[in-house]
Design a protein around this nucleic acid. Structure first.
Lengths: 229, 229
DNA sequence: TAAATGAAATGTGTCGACAATTTTAACTTG
DNA sequence: CAAGTTAAAATTGTCGACACATTTCATTTA
């Protein structure tokens, strides 16, 4: 599988296709963070005209993967510590609210689906001690589902359509394999319980804590690493 | 003055200029909400080529003023009640967090500036009973300033660069002239006090209440209007 | 040698034309 | 007359070329 974002619609035009390819290359770091983008070069590499490439670049800019300056050109965004922390702050606000809305708006069937998913994740974790799996795909699956279940188009677009591209980029480039997997699973369970109880306030609070915990974990690692320098 | 968004950078290219013109036309309703956009027609009206127009359309899509479907075309976004409420929910989350960050990150000078601005607003209000002014420009000024003072690029871009175009559009098209002006001023004062005290938690809570109050005010009006039908 | 100037080279912005798709309209058929 | 089919018109997507701005680099000058 190539894409994990559930809001990503299937590519119909060539600009769509190239957008996905470049997006993947940026997220994975094949096109390095902070590097300048040469339109003629990329157009040649992907065998398309510059117009089509520029269409793709516009979409990359929309999900904050590149930045453009008039008459100067495009750069892949820098992956900085500050940027990462700002991203987590923003996620805390948006996903917290999405979680509250999910608690208020989810259908009973959607809740049942989610419980099933979490149960499956739990078994996977027990059986294979699937730490690596859970923190990658499982965590994303859970968060995506909560956001979609907020049934708020504005929130869904902002988070899934924009923020999460950056989230995945940072995960790849900073190689985040923290040992928070089992704790994250427990936190997910708590959140789902609050949603099941239709307790929007608690659901938001738990989701915010969940994300804040990740952020603090990162901050701690940074601090430790700074001691070694 | 034409533009109020402080993050909007001066137009250097023709696409920039046309973007601003169309943006203005959409926000003001000169190009009606929900209407289809004809590329050839608009290109002719603004005396530019379709490529340049499409560049402008891409930016309009970035701030959620139009929606595009592949091989079909662009439409101006619909102004619906649901959309408006979703927008306020999102604002509550984002601006609440921005306000918390502002309380934590603002410099003392920025706080002094803000106090001066609010004091000026208060006098204007007293002197001219400037209800109309305050709810339009003054309210926007205050919110913009808080957001910018969060010093969080992610938040600033999401709110000022995207959400607030929609906010202004809804304000224009739904003709929001609610009698919340003096209450809003008081709420702003409370928020600034919390910021001055560096109380991030309270600042966020007050900002969320402030925005939620606007939302509930709208919901009430809708309900009243529905009784007349 | 370092700073300033100017020209060449590279890169971005804009244009008009063609290709591919969708929409419209006319026409056939039941 | 309604529904389905087909052809024409209109619209969007893509392309290559040119105009303009920026960057690079060689040359001049203090």
């Amino acid at each position: 599988m190539y894409l994990t974002n559930p809001t990503q619609q299937t590519a119909v035009t060539t600009a769509d296709r190239v957008f996905e390819q470049i997006q993947h290359a940026i997220v994975e770091g094949d096109i390095p963070s902070g590097s300048k983008i040469s339109e003629p070069e990329l157009a040649k590499r992907y065998q398309i005209s510059r117009s089509t490439l520029r269409e793709a670049l516009n979409r990359l800019e929309k999900c904050h993967l590149i930045e453009r300056k008039a008459n100067v050109g495009s750069r892949v965004v820098d992956c900085t510590i500050e940027g990462l922390l700002e991203l987590y702050i923003t996620r805390e606000a948006l996903e917290g609210m999405a979680c509250r809305q999910a608690a208020l708006n989810m259908s009973d069937m959607e809740i049942a689906d989610m419980q099933a998913m979490l149960k499956a994740h739990g078994q996977t974790q027990e059986l294979k001690d699937g730490v690596a799996y859970y923190q990658e795909q499982g965590d994303l699956d859970f968060h995506y589902k909560v956001i979609l279940c907020s049934h708020n188009k504005q929130l869904i677009d902002l988070i899934c359509g924009q923020l999460y591209h950056l989230v995945r980029m940072y995960r790849c480039q900073f190689g985040m394999n923290s040992p928070r997997a089992s704790r994250a699973f427990n936190e997910h369970s708590q959140i789902l319980q609050a949603i099941t109880d239709r307790d929007g306030e608690l659901a938001e609070m738990l989701m915010r804590r969940h994300i804040a915990a990740s952020r603090k974990n990162i901050e701690k690692k940074i601090a430790e690493q700074n001691l070694l320098d």
